[in-house]
Design a protein around this nucleic acid. Structure first.
Lengths: 211, 211
DNA sequence: TGAAGATTACTACTTTTGTGGTATTGATAA
DNA sequence: TTATCAATACCACAAAAGTAGTAATCTTCA
């Protein structure tokens, strides 16, 4: 079975790099470059009509930087898949890009073969990024929160019940899943609510999801 | 230049898997398994003395689950590098693990060669995880956007109401905040649920939060 | 061994949420 | 200019969730 060609747009101000990427993509089976743009303004104007599968986006560009461009593109096209391709490895730029809507973050020094692989990965619902960048992202999760400590005070069973609650299960459904009575579920929930200092299902779920 | 051997500890309740991993690691150049534990309690007691470079940790275990075990280990040994190795791919487990202090998250179906590579990556300051898992992590950075069918788009007011619902507000509280009657809130919610194809508050909130 | 905590379960009652039907008003699009 | 949609609102009933008190087992730990 032949895979469908992945269409790519490139936003990058440096001519050499832009052309180089374009050549790489068009020269690789399964990929086609459908547009190249030297800045965010042109990209923003043209990409909604092109509807590429994937956008490669530089950060540092004249007129409109890549992060703002991502933000505006995603507003128009929420499903558009964008990967940053940049020389920067600094935390701020990474987080801003991801917040703005990028799904992946690669460095320009990435090998061509690896780059193509990453584009495919992105298109398939992944988030390509180097292991080092992933570590920075993961690190932002690791400030221990009060919420989390509260969750630790929950017993195994309570955590289990809370996890089903957070899937939207009703008491009866939780009871049936765990082979216990609805009354027991109630009792657990009462204790969970007390431990988490909440008064409703939704609040408990929000705490559980750390929102 | 010969690389230094990476010492590994394994925490996993299933004998077969634990032994299999141990054999794999001891049979691979550059890796050595210095301890295996069938549960969190034993791991917690022994690992501080062993001081392995890397810990492979299962989630589901009797006595103390992997997440709690990570949390306690990291409290004692903040620099310890831990990677989850589990069958679960669900969001909650991933985030809880990372929050608790895991630096990587791998699935048990990971190929042996890839697993060894990931251990090395972890040891070198990376955060090995599949691209799909990375996407889930990245998604938490992005603004909750409802990417539903355009035809079923929620109106402004409906989105507003949903946002309060997602804060855990009761109907009465939403009504008071927006200066409308509880009945109106009800009507909106009814329409929202229909559009989102859900039947409860929690499900609606989960969709809203992209969970 | 005895206390503490986890898990199970019941009764009884209140509050909140979900469902269905209906209707008015104002804006907007066919 | 009619038809549709968004926003408002009410009634009535059903289902689910939350509160309160109580208690039997079982495990585990000091």
């Amino acid at each position: 079975m032949k895979k469908k060609t992945i269409t790519v747009a490139i936003v990058e101000d440096l001519d050499d790099i832009r052309n180089g990427l374009s050549v790489l993509i068009n020269g690789s089976e399964g990929f086609r470059c459908v547009g190249t743009f030297p800045n965010g303004v042109e990209a923003l104007a043209a990409i909604p009509a092109l509807l590429p599968d994937v956008v490669l986006m530089d950060i540092d560009m004249p007129k409109m930087n890549g992060i703002e461009c991502i933000y505006r593109l995603k507003k128009k096209l929420p499903l558009l898949q964008i990967v940053m391709l940049t020389v920067f490895e600094d935390d701020e730029k990474i987080f801003q890009s991801l917040q703005a809507g990028a799904s992946g973050y690669l460095l320009k020094k990435t090998q061509p073969a690896k780059l193509l692989e990453s584009i495919e990965e992105l298109h398939n619902g992944g988030s390509p990024m180097s292991s080092q960048i992933a570590r920075k992202v993961v690190a932002t999760f690791q400030q221990p929160t009060i919420v989390f400590n509260a969750a630790l005070a929950l017993s195994q069973r309570e955590q289990e019940i809370l996890s089903y609650l957070a899937k939207g299960f009703r008491y009866k459904e939780i009871a049936d899943t765990l082979f216990i009575s609805v009354e027991t579920v109630r009792t657990h929930l009462r204790n969970i609510y007390e431990k988490l200092h909440v008064r409703s299902r939704t609040e408990a779920v929000l705490k559980y999801l750390n929102k």
